[in-house]
Design a protein around this nucleic acid. Sequence first.
RNA 1: GCGAGAGUGGUGAAAUUGGUAAACGCACUGGAUUUAGGAUCCAGCGAGCUAUGCUCUUGGGGGUUCAAGUCCCCCCUCUCGCACCA
Length: 854
Amino acid sequence: MEYPFIEIEKKWQKIWEEKKIFAAQDKSNKEKKYILSMFPYPSGDLHMGHISNYSIGDALTRFYLQSGYNVMQPMGYDSFGMPAENFAIQHNSHPKITTEENISKMKKQLTSMGFGLDWSRELSTCRPDYYRWGQWLFKKMYEKGLVYKKKSFVNWCPDCATVLANEQVEEGGCWRCGTTVVQKELEQWFAKITDYAEELLDTSDLLDWPAKVKLMQKNWIGRSTGVTIDFIYGEQKLPVFTTRPDTIFGVTFMAIAPEHPLTQSFLQAEGEDSQLYKFCQKVMNQDNSQRTAEDKEKEGIFTGRHCINPVNGEKVEIWITNYVLMDYGTGAVMAVPAHDIRDFLFAKKYQIAIKVVVQNEEKNLDANTMQEAFIEDGTMVNSAQFDQMGNRQCLEQIADWIDQQGYGKKSINYKLRDWGLSRQRYWGNPIPVVYCEKCGTQLVPDEQLPVLLPDDIQIGKTKQNPLLSATEWQKTTCPKCGGAATRETDTMDTFVDSSWYFARYCDAHNQQAPFSKDKANYWLPVDQYIGGIEHAVLHLLYARFFHKFMRDIGLVDCNEPFSRLLTQGMVCMQSYKCPKDGYLFPQDAIIEGKSATCALCGSPVTIGSIEKMSKSKKNVVNPNDYLQRYGADTLRTFVLFASPPEKDVDWNDKAVGGAFRFLNRVYKVFVKNKKFLEQDYTPAGDISAEYKELRYSSHYTIKKAIGYVREKMQFNTAIAAVMEHLNNLYAASSPTTDAEKALYKEAHILIPQIIYPFAPHLCEEIWEMIGKHKLLHDSGLPSYDEKFLVKNDITFVIQVMGKIRAQLETTKNTPKEEIIAEAKEIANVKKFLAGKTIIKEIVVPGKLVNFVVR
RNA sequence: GCGAGAGUGGUGAAAUUGGUAAACGCACUGGAUUUAGGAUCCAGCGAGCUAUGCUCUUGGGGGUUCAAGUCCCCCCUCUCGCACCA
């Protein structure tokens, strides 16, 4: 017999919708909890990652409702962007249409999973009522000087035909399609995230973020302290940043990037036929991944020019090299071959002088004989007044001296770059800017917001931004002079849309502002955010930046958007690749032992690694199959039971049946004892030892399961505890006295109360079945009594020299001496004590006895 | 190279934080019931042995302790992140 999950789930989903129990109140005398799962791109299909993510969020939502909080769990869609645009192109439609279609499909699936989402706050980033406020925020940033337009070299994905932020380049490829990213010089909008670098490093308000994510952000921001030293080139200054001012006397050449302004002036002087020009062209034509490859040979060319080291007036050769990057520091490096690995290799290759300024302990470092750079600490030499000092000790002193003498300035450098916001794509939020020939760059006035995306547009015809051909749309008037003006055709990175959506949920339909301050201050920060680790230095960093900006313009009071973060593990699966058919769905690979053949063409298949499920790898499983076969409760229980939430799971559907069996067993015991459970029992009469055990099991399960959920979000062990209790309940014989009946009933009803967050439909059903009138989310959590957790009969473990030799059944109040005496009488213990002297007797109360013998 | 994390049965994983390693589930094996079962129930399930018991076992090797999966030191392997960062 299978429990009728289809009817049950439909029934309760309807009831929840009608009663609107997940519509959160914006004010409440209850404490608030804001539970948020990262909103999805509306592909039209929920995948296992979503199921896992939202099952966690919903378990917490329902658990906190039970605990008496005012809980908000909203849902929306990250619906702008390339995938949506491409989807529409493929389906020969318009993203506006396909996106809404996909959204309604997804909403249906989310509902059929029984997720308790507050649909009254639903948002979609591509709807004008949302993106209007994105434009408004952009304007605020502009007014504050936090966005600017600049011509520079940017990452360009030729396939997506758009610019990418630094954070969106992974191993030299586009984070989305993997195409090798090239550098292109373009005029682009940037957001000054670097203004917040220092504050973003402060993670003290991130209460429960994984250390890994905090560290990744820290490394990404890449703060280093040092000195910017102005070398002198004629009348000009040539600033360099260094973290090693202690080696300033060891500089033997200057290495600058081909993109450096000084290089550009040299090139103008030398002309296009020069060696210098050719070298620079060669280097600059390489894409970044090639240029920064680990094994890349260091190359350079002497410019024939020199600059002056300000501290000692020495003439220093200026070289253009391929290993100095324009976008870090000043694009110029003071090279100290004796004490830097790269500089050493370069100096050796081009026979440039090497000068030792930090001597090793053996005092045998010699510029002529050294085989590698000496990068450890030592004693300063050849460094004027600093000689004989420890280099590490006088680092600060030298920095101060350089600063005071005016040779340079103590400074801090960040690896973090400003966030490139412009995208040369149609399906995104238009940047609310117009260009007037007379007045220049002008913001679109508030009353004209939103700048609507034009609908009548051809997409997918060329790789060019479709907005460039929307000439009518581009034509507008200048808000300042009223003359003719042209609209900006770049749209915003979709990460802008997702950088503030958590705040919009607090007041999703506000027409006057992005959200009201009161409501935002009530709900924010998000108490528990759940999402994938892949956003560690993308969304999670951008959102923190945006939030701080919103705080600074007075929209919110708190410092951080997400106080707790759970990075949920990925759902992974084996991938198979056929030489002819490419990636295969698992069902298309016939596996025999360790080899596999393609079911489509019969060729041998390579069994790939276990990878995150993705459509492109064709290793996805469709949640709908499981939904139909086992129902939402089983699927939810299964994904939560499979492993702790932050861990990756390799999909294995065999275990789904286990979750189903468990829920079936729960249902069955309630159906069987329905009549019994409808009545109340006053505890009177004797309680057998067996029933005392059952009582212990009930109270222990409540404590353990609730503790696991609240303290650790370890749903797998919480479910395991209930499974164990259910086994105990099945094993119990029928109650005889009223006291036992009360305990028997207690042992039943805690089950739906505890597993409600995981299998809510089933639990509501059996809750109703036993005559409860309130819904479960509103019925509180079961409580336990410590006094029933103290066992009267205790099993002591008896060890001799730390090895278990016997077990001793005893009662709670047996004195220590008696336990020891009894333990010594056990045959097997006697055997190991024979002929030995006991030198120590260790008794761990309620647990074990250990005899130390000689 | 730098940084972080992980390594426990056939398998997913537990272990009250130093106190009976492998709870709970899956798979498997046997049995019961059944026309049948991809249903249900019962039992078994780390390895080995001279088997009422003993020995070994949490990647490997040392150490601390009466007692170590857990603490300390060394090594190995894997995963992830960053990577010419001046």
